[in-house]
Protein backbone atom coordinates (compact mmCIF):
# COMPACT_ATOMS: atom_id res chain seq x y z
CA UNK A 1 0.00 0.00 0.00
CA UNK A 2 2.90 2.34 0.73
CA UNK A 3 3.64 2.42 -2.97
CA UNK A 4 0.24 3.90 -3.61
CA UNK A 5 1.06 7.05 -1.66
CA UNK A 6 2.62 9.46 -4.11
CA UNK A 7 2.92 12.55 -1.94
CA UNK A 8 3.45 12.67 1.78
CA UNK A 9 3.96 15.68 3.98
CA UNK A 10 4.60 15.59 7.69
CA UNK A 11 5.00 18.63 9.89
CA UNK A 12 5.77 20.45 6.65
CA UNK A 13 6.39 24.17 7.08
CA UNK A 14 7.36 27.21 5.05
CA UNK A 15 8.27 30.56 6.47
CA UNK A 16 9.06 33.69 4.46
CA UNK A 17 11.40 36.08 6.23
CA UNK A 18 10.89 36.64 9.94
CA UNK A 19 7.14 36.88 10.25
CA UNK A 20 5.23 35.27 7.43
CA UNK A 21 4.40 31.66 8.19
CA UNK A 22 2.84 30.68 4.86
CA UNK A 23 2.47 26.97 5.69
CA UNK A 24 2.64 25.42 9.14
CA UNK A 25 2.57 21.82 10.31
CA UNK A 26 0.99 20.37 7.19
CA UNK A 27 0.36 16.63 7.46
CA UNK A 28 -1.14 14.80 4.55
CA UNK A 29 -0.89 11.73 2.37
CA UNK A 30 -2.07 11.77 -1.19
CA UNK A 31 -2.79 8.42 -2.82
CA UNK A 32 -1.87 7.77 -6.41
CA UNK A 33 -4.59 8.61 -8.90
CA UNK A 34 -6.58 10.81 -6.56
CA UNK A 35 -7.91 14.27 -7.16
CA UNK A 36 -7.32 16.67 -4.27
CA UNK A 37 -8.90 20.10 -4.08
CA UNK A 38 -7.15 22.71 -2.00
CA UNK A 39 -9.61 25.37 -0.90
CA UNK A 40 -9.23 28.37 1.35
CA UNK A 41 -9.30 32.15 1.47
CA UNK A 42 -6.76 34.34 -0.25
CA UNK A 43 -3.32 34.36 1.32
CA UNK A 44 -3.74 31.14 3.30
CA UNK A 45 -0.77 29.47 1.65
CA UNK A 46 -2.33 27.36 -1.12
CA UNK A 47 0.12 28.46 -3.79
CA UNK A 48 2.99 28.12 -1.36
CA UNK A 49 2.05 24.51 -0.58
CA UNK A 50 1.83 23.75 -4.29
CA UNK A 51 5.20 25.34 -4.99
CA UNK A 52 6.75 23.33 -2.15
CA UNK A 53 5.49 20.09 -3.69
CA UNK A 54 6.65 21.15 -7.16
CA UNK A 55 10.16 21.75 -5.83
CA UNK A 56 10.17 25.39 -6.92
CA UNK A 57 10.78 26.58 -3.37
CA UNK A 58 12.46 24.94 -0.38
CA UNK A 59 10.62 23.98 2.77
CA UNK A 60 11.72 25.46 6.07
CA UNK A 61 10.85 22.44 8.16
CA UNK A 62 9.28 18.97 8.30
CA UNK A 63 9.29 16.29 5.64
CA UNK A 64 8.00 16.18 2.11
CA UNK A 65 8.24 13.01 0.08
CA UNK A 66 7.24 12.43 -3.52
CA UNK A 67 7.42 8.77 -4.50
CA UNK A 68 9.29 8.17 -1.26
CA UNK A 69 12.06 10.61 -2.12
CA UNK A 70 12.71 13.93 -0.48
CA UNK A 71 11.80 16.84 -2.80
CA UNK A 72 14.96 18.72 -3.72
CA UNK A 73 13.94 20.57 -6.89
CA UNK A 74 11.69 20.47 -9.92
CA UNK A 75 11.14 16.94 -11.24
CA UNK A 76 9.89 15.66 -14.53
CA UNK A 77 6.98 13.67 -13.08
CA UNK A 78 5.45 16.86 -11.70
CA UNK A 79 3.79 19.42 -13.99
CA UNK A 80 2.23 22.76 -13.18
CA UNK A 81 -0.45 25.01 -14.51
CA UNK A 82 -1.20 28.55 -13.37
CA UNK A 83 -4.07 31.00 -13.37
CA UNK A 84 -2.44 32.69 -16.33
CA UNK A 85 -1.78 30.48 -19.34
CA UNK A 86 1.87 31.67 -19.51
CA UNK A 87 2.21 30.99 -23.22
CA UNK A 88 5.05 32.35 -25.31
CA UNK A 89 3.39 34.93 -27.57
CA UNK A 90 5.78 34.36 -30.47
CA UNK A 91 4.99 30.65 -30.69
CA UNK A 92 2.00 28.96 -32.22
CA UNK A 93 -0.11 26.62 -30.08
CA UNK A 94 1.74 23.54 -31.25
CA UNK A 95 5.12 25.18 -30.67
CA UNK A 96 4.04 26.13 -27.16
CA UNK A 97 2.94 22.57 -26.47
CA UNK A 98 6.31 21.30 -27.69
CA UNK A 99 8.25 23.52 -25.28
CA UNK A 100 8.76 20.78 -22.65
CA UNK A 101 10.29 18.48 -25.28
CA UNK A 102 12.47 21.25 -26.60
CA UNK A 103 13.83 21.93 -23.13
CA UNK A 104 14.48 18.26 -22.49
CA UNK A 105 15.93 17.72 -25.92
CA UNK A 106 13.38 15.01 -26.69
CA UNK A 107 11.83 16.54 -29.76
CA UNK A 108 11.15 13.99 -32.50
CA UNK A 109 8.30 12.80 -34.68
CA UNK A 110 6.79 10.93 -31.77
CA UNK A 111 6.81 14.07 -29.60
CA UNK A 112 5.26 16.07 -32.41
CA UNK A 113 2.55 13.47 -32.86
CA UNK A 114 1.77 13.55 -29.15
CA UNK A 115 1.64 17.37 -29.15
CA UNK A 116 -0.77 17.23 -32.05
CA UNK A 117 -2.95 14.68 -30.28
CA UNK A 118 -2.94 16.67 -27.04
CA UNK A 119 -4.21 19.73 -28.89
CA UNK A 120 -7.03 17.64 -30.36
CA UNK A 121 -7.76 16.22 -26.91
CA UNK A 122 -8.22 19.67 -25.35
CA UNK A 123 -10.49 20.70 -28.22
CA UNK A 124 -8.15 22.89 -30.23
CA UNK A 125 -8.47 21.19 -33.58
CA UNK A 126 -7.77 23.80 -36.29
CA UNK A 127 -6.01 26.13 -33.84
CA UNK A 128 -2.66 24.34 -33.93
CA UNK A 129 -1.00 27.21 -35.76
CA UNK A 130 -2.70 30.11 -34.04
CA UNK A 131 -0.70 32.46 -31.86
CA UNK A 132 -1.79 33.04 -28.25
CA UNK A 133 -3.04 36.54 -29.04
CA UNK A 134 -5.39 35.08 -31.61
CA UNK A 135 -7.01 32.87 -28.96
CA UNK A 136 -9.60 33.59 -26.25
CA UNK A 137 -8.64 33.25 -22.59
CA UNK A 138 -10.29 29.84 -22.38
CA UNK A 139 -8.48 28.58 -25.46
CA UNK A 140 -5.19 29.83 -24.09
CA UNK A 141 -5.77 27.77 -20.95
CA UNK A 142 -6.49 24.79 -23.18
CA UNK A 143 -3.09 25.23 -24.80
CA UNK A 144 -1.54 25.42 -21.33
CA UNK A 145 -3.34 22.19 -20.41
CA UNK A 146 -2.07 20.49 -23.56
CA UNK A 147 1.46 21.62 -22.69
CA UNK A 148 1.03 20.17 -19.20
CA UNK A 149 -0.09 16.84 -20.70
CA UNK A 150 2.87 16.97 -23.04
CA UNK A 151 5.29 16.99 -20.10
CA UNK A 152 4.12 13.43 -19.41
CA UNK A 153 3.96 14.32 -15.71
CA UNK A 154 1.55 12.12 -13.77
CA UNK A 155 1.38 14.53 -10.84
CA UNK A 156 -0.45 17.67 -11.86
CA UNK A 157 -0.44 20.78 -9.73
CA UNK A 158 -3.06 23.26 -10.87
CA UNK A 159 -3.13 26.69 -9.24
CA UNK A 160 -6.59 28.16 -9.92
CA UNK A 161 -6.15 27.16 -13.56
CA UNK A 162 -9.53 28.46 -14.71
CA UNK A 163 -9.94 31.17 -12.08
CA UNK A 164 -9.73 34.04 -14.54
CA UNK A 165 -12.36 32.65 -16.91
CA UNK A 166 -16.10 33.20 -17.01
CA UNK A 167 -18.31 30.69 -15.26
CA UNK A 168 -19.54 28.84 -18.37
CA UNK A 169 -16.07 28.32 -19.73
CA UNK A 170 -14.81 27.32 -16.31
CA UNK A 171 -17.49 24.66 -15.83
CA UNK A 172 -16.80 23.19 -19.24
CA UNK A 173 -13.08 23.13 -18.71
CA UNK A 174 -13.51 21.57 -15.26
CA UNK A 175 -15.49 18.72 -16.80
CA UNK A 176 -12.95 18.23 -19.55
CA UNK A 177 -10.15 18.25 -17.00
CA UNK A 178 -11.92 15.56 -14.96
CA UNK A 179 -12.29 13.42 -18.05
CA UNK A 180 -8.59 13.80 -18.86
CA UNK A 181 -7.18 13.05 -15.41
CA UNK A 182 -9.61 10.31 -14.39
CA UNK A 183 -8.22 6.84 -13.94
CA UNK A 184 -5.63 5.41 -11.60
CA UNK A 185 -2.53 7.07 -13.04
CA UNK A 186 -2.77 10.81 -12.74
CA UNK A 187 -2.66 12.46 -9.34
CA UNK A 188 -4.06 15.98 -9.28
CA UNK A 189 -3.95 18.83 -6.79
CA UNK A 190 -6.32 21.60 -7.73
CA UNK A 191 -6.30 24.96 -5.98
CA UNK A 192 -9.50 27.00 -5.91
CA UNK A 193 -11.36 29.68 -3.98
CA UNK A 194 -14.67 28.15 -4.87
CA UNK A 195 -16.10 25.66 -2.38
CA UNK A 196 -18.62 24.10 -4.79
CA UNK A 197 -16.00 23.65 -7.45
CA UNK A 198 -13.61 22.09 -4.93
CA UNK A 199 -16.16 19.50 -3.86
CA UNK A 200 -17.50 18.82 -7.34
CA UNK A 201 -14.07 17.91 -8.69
CA UNK A 202 -12.38 16.13 -5.83
CA UNK A 203 -11.99 12.81 -4.12
CA UNK A 204 -10.73 14.73 -1.13
CA UNK A 205 -10.90 18.40 -0.16
CA UNK A 206 -8.13 19.97 1.90
CA UNK A 207 -9.44 23.06 3.64
CA UNK A 208 -6.76 25.60 4.42
CA UNK A 209 -7.03 28.45 6.90
CA UNK A 210 -4.76 31.48 7.12
CA UNK A 211 -2.33 33.01 9.61
CA UNK A 212 -0.54 30.72 9.92
CA UNK A 213 -1.41 28.67 6.84
CA UNK A 214 -2.70 25.30 8.01
CA UNK A 215 -4.61 22.41 6.56
CA UNK A 216 -7.54 22.63 8.95
CA UNK A 217 -9.49 19.67 7.59
CA UNK A 218 -9.26 16.88 5.04
CA UNK A 219 -12.70 15.85 3.88
CA UNK A 220 -13.34 12.69 1.83
CA UNK A 221 -15.95 13.37 -0.85
CA UNK A 222 -18.03 10.26 -1.20
CA UNK A 223 -20.02 11.18 -4.27
CA UNK A 224 -20.36 8.80 -7.22
CA UNK A 225 -18.02 9.23 -10.18
CA UNK A 226 -18.08 10.38 -12.90
CA UNK A 227 -19.47 13.58 -11.46
CA UNK A 228 -22.20 15.46 -13.17
CA UNK A 229 -23.59 18.89 -12.62
CA UNK A 230 -26.93 17.64 -11.26
CA UNK A 231 -25.17 16.31 -8.18
CA UNK A 232 -24.46 19.84 -7.04
CA UNK A 233 -28.07 20.25 -5.96
CA UNK A 234 -28.31 17.06 -3.89
CA UNK A 235 -28.49 17.15 -0.08
CA UNK A 236 -25.22 15.18 0.17
CA UNK A 237 -23.43 17.80 -1.87
CA UNK A 238 -24.81 20.61 0.23
CA UNK A 239 -23.78 18.73 3.29
CA UNK A 240 -20.18 18.83 2.13
CA UNK A 241 -20.46 22.54 1.32
CA UNK A 242 -21.70 23.11 4.85
CA UNK A 243 -18.83 21.08 6.30
CA UNK A 244 -16.24 23.15 4.48
CA UNK A 245 -17.97 26.38 5.50
CA UNK A 246 -18.02 25.25 9.12
CA UNK A 247 -14.29 24.58 9.07
CA UNK A 248 -13.56 27.98 7.58
CA UNK A 249 -16.04 29.79 9.86
CA UNK A 250 -14.81 27.97 12.97
CA UNK A 251 -11.37 29.20 12.24
CA UNK A 252 -12.25 32.64 11.05
CA UNK A 253 -14.56 33.46 14.00
CA UNK A 254 -13.12 36.35 15.91
CA UNK A 255 -10.21 36.65 13.47
CA UNK A 256 -9.60 39.93 11.76
CA UNK A 257 -10.01 39.37 8.07
Amino acid sequence: MAEELVIQGSALGKQFGENVIAVEDANFTIPRGSFISLVGPSGCGKSTLLRLISGLIEKSGGDLLVRNAEVVGPRSDIGMMFQKAVLLDWRTSIENVLLPDEIRGTIDTDAKKRAWDHLQLVGLKDFEFSFPRQLSGGMQQRVALARLLQTGADIMLLDEPFGALDEFTRERLNDELLRIVEGPDITTIFVTHNIQEAIYLADQVFVMTPRPGRIAAQIEIDLPTPRNIDMTTTPEFNNYVQQVRDVLAGHLDGQPL
Binding site: L56, P74, S76, F82, K84, V86, L88, P100, I103, R104
Partner: peptide, 26 residues
Amino acid sequence: IDKDATELFRSLGSTKKQFFWKCQIP
Protein backbone atom coordinates in the same frame (compact mmCIF):
# COMPACT_ATOMS: atom_id res chain seq x y z
CA ILE B 1 10.27 38.71 -17.14
CA ASP B 2 6.92 37.46 -15.96
CA LYS B 3 7.36 35.56 -12.68
CA ASP B 4 5.06 32.75 -13.82
CA ALA B 5 7.12 32.29 -16.98
CA THR B 6 10.25 31.93 -14.87
CA GLU B 7 8.53 29.30 -12.73
CA LEU B 8 7.20 27.49 -15.77
CA PHE B 9 10.69 27.19 -17.23
CA ARG B 10 12.14 26.13 -13.89
CA SER B 11 9.46 23.48 -13.43
CA LEU B 12 10.31 22.13 -16.88
CA GLY B 13 13.95 21.78 -15.81
CA SER B 14 15.22 24.51 -18.13
CA THR B 15 18.86 25.59 -18.04
CA LYS B 16 19.70 29.28 -17.73
CA LYS B 17 20.86 29.30 -21.30
CA GLN B 18 17.60 27.81 -22.58
CA PHE B 19 15.63 30.31 -20.53
CA PHE B 20 17.73 33.14 -21.93
CA TRP B 21 17.21 32.21 -25.57
CA LYS B 22 13.70 30.81 -25.44
CA CYS B 23 12.13 33.29 -23.03
CA GLN B 24 14.18 36.32 -22.02
CA ILE B 25 15.41 37.43 -25.44
CA PRO B 26 12.11 37.07 -27.32
